[in-house]
Write a protein that binds this DNA or RNA. Sequence first.
DNA 1: CTGCCAAGTCAACAATCCTTGACACGCTTC
DNA 2: GAAGCGTGTCAAGGATTGTTGACTTGGCAG
Lengths: 141, 141
Amino acid sequence: MGSDDLFEAVSHPLRVEIVKLLAKGPRRFADIKRELRIKSSGLLDFHLKKLDNLISINKDGFYVLNEKGFAALQAVEAISKYGWQRRAFYLNLLFLIIVNIYVMLTMAEWLPFTLVVTAVWMIFYGYWTFVKRHVSLKPRS
Amino acid sequence: MGSDDLFEAVSHPLRVEIVKLLAKGPRRFADIKRELRIKSSGLLDFHLKKLDNLISINKDGFYVLNEKGFAALQAVEAISKYGWQRRAFYLNLLFLIIVNIYVMLTMAEWLPFTLVVTAVWMIFYGYWTFVKRHVSLKPRS
DNA sequence: CTGCCAAGTCAACAATCCTTGACACGCTTC
DNA sequence: GAAGCGTGTCAAGGATTGTTGACTTGGCAG
């Protein structure tokens, strides 16, 4: 999958919006124009032409994302999900602490086992999050 | 994570190459210039300035990807991996067929169980691949 | 001191991008 | 048949981008 022209295609905010909109379902020209509050037909025409190889027109004349368009959508979503990876890690950590406290209070004999299992899990998950995916501990860089 | 300016940053082939290169490790100006065979310093300067908020300069004066840069890298990788999802599905299917044949030939009494488990797995995996991620069955659209 | 390299900066210019606004053509509805 | 909507196309022009090549500044080697 050539990433060069694909990024160029979604390198304008409006085109990202169009891709996101078409991911929800097929739309006609005027639907896109209305839903994204675009005043000029020429403007929409210009950007649709830029998105040429990410979208297709189906048999009813609706614009739809093609496979390359969905690939672009995954790239867009990868970025918006990126900021959540650190938060997901902390939520996971919190959850496992609660589990351990619960085990300690109700079935204390299982605590060593639970502790080891959750610790191993957090080590693997932490490695994957912070080393492999380069998420940093500080919220701002 | 604002995806707009991020896509704009990697909307040029050379800038994608720079991000991929810096993902391998810190580089100095002349390193990038040499490794990507860029003739003009001005050209590299121009594109590095465009990548301004994806990269930082560390204490040794090396260019490095910052967190936003790694987010961009994930987007780039999401696209290059996209073409493999269908192939991965077929490889998985092939593997499960082989497993079933093996089970049939060596421990035939387990076949109904294996068949059900692998079928359920393929249904879930297929749903995730083709419906949720919009990978199409035809190689070309 | 002289020359060379690293690490840029800057001016200039062509190419392209983005946007507007005008226009076209077909279909429906009053 | 006139008005209005849907689905565009096109020309013009300012803004931005991409590229080159000349220039600068500082460090180091001979």
